[in-house]
Amino acid sequence: MRSTLTYALKRLLLVPFMLFLIATLSFLLLALIPGDPAVLIVGEFADQETLARVRADLGLDRPFWEQYLTYLAAVAQADLGQSYLTGTPVMEEIGQRLPNSLVIIIPSLLMAVVVGTVVGTAGGYFRRGPVGKVTSVLISAAQGVPPFFLAIVLIYLLVFTIRMFPVPTGMLYSSMRPPPEVTGVVPLDALLAGQWSVLGAITAHAILPVIATGLFLASYFAKTVRTSVTQAMATPQVEFARACGLPERQVVRYALLTARTSVLTYTAVLFGVMLSATAVVEVVFSWPGIGAWALDGVLKGDLPIIQGFIVVTGGLVIIAYVVLDVLVAALDPRIRH
């Protein structure tokens, strides 16, 4: 147990260093992208004087290294600047939107792990029988259908045809008043105000986007689990387990233990992917998440938004990887000891 703790601490010490790298990267991005932010803010027809003033306000007239240090210092204090176009602080916006995205991402990852593990195990165990063939087809199909496409089909069928789910206009019904603002995070505010009907509305609105993303992610889990289980079933370990007369269900459990590490790794990887890939599904469901917002920022060239998005999602991915690493170590006696 103590060695796991030391291991965790060692990993955690790396986090600030990686965050620094990410901040540097996002700063360089700003510096290297052509175009004048001042023009973006005050328009092409502004006079030289105004442009110069805006540049000075942004600190763009300072030497490169000074800009870099100022930026790092700001990031270190969790200040990610303001949107060029709306002036809203980027950190504040992310703070309100990121939880909304997590309302989709985390359940769809959980769903994907469960569905993927079940389907993948069945596929790996029965790979030569009809079950294996069917799962194989299902996995390929699910991988081939992008989440937004599935989202549109689901909306058409379940919202407009059989009216099982609410119209995809964000998290709440259009007639619903948002909860009193405390944190600015709608689900959290609803919880604080004890407005269960609002939470219920959020859940009802989240189901389809979760299914659309979850099924897509599940296909990837199913594929890795199937590969791991297929390989594990052919190992001397499984052979010995059978030779000792263990029941098949336990034999499968032995095989799945080997797949555990790859499932965990995949969860962290896909979490990272999803942070940046939810944009399209968020757009389709008008979901006020971080992805759709960042996509908008990219399209408009709003650099602080892009930078802030990179720093925050990059940081989250790093943390997810570290947590995963420690978890894998804690679960595997070969690393633990």
């Binding site: 190992t235 001397p236 370990q237 052979e239 010995f240 387990a241 059978r242 030779a243 000792c244 007369g245 263990l246 029941p247 098949e248 032995y254 233990l257 080997t258 555990r260 679960l331 595997d332 006696p333 070969r334």
Partner: peptide, 25 residues
């Protein structure tokens, strides 16, 4: 077969490390 294997017939593998589960005690 399961009821016989490990009970009436014992099977000893070639590679002990291959046979033992690395994750369970």
């Amino acid at each position: 077969l399961r009821r016989i294997l490990g009970n009436e017939i014992g099977f000893i593998s070639q590679s002990p490390f291959g046979a033992l589960n690395p994750i369970l005690s």
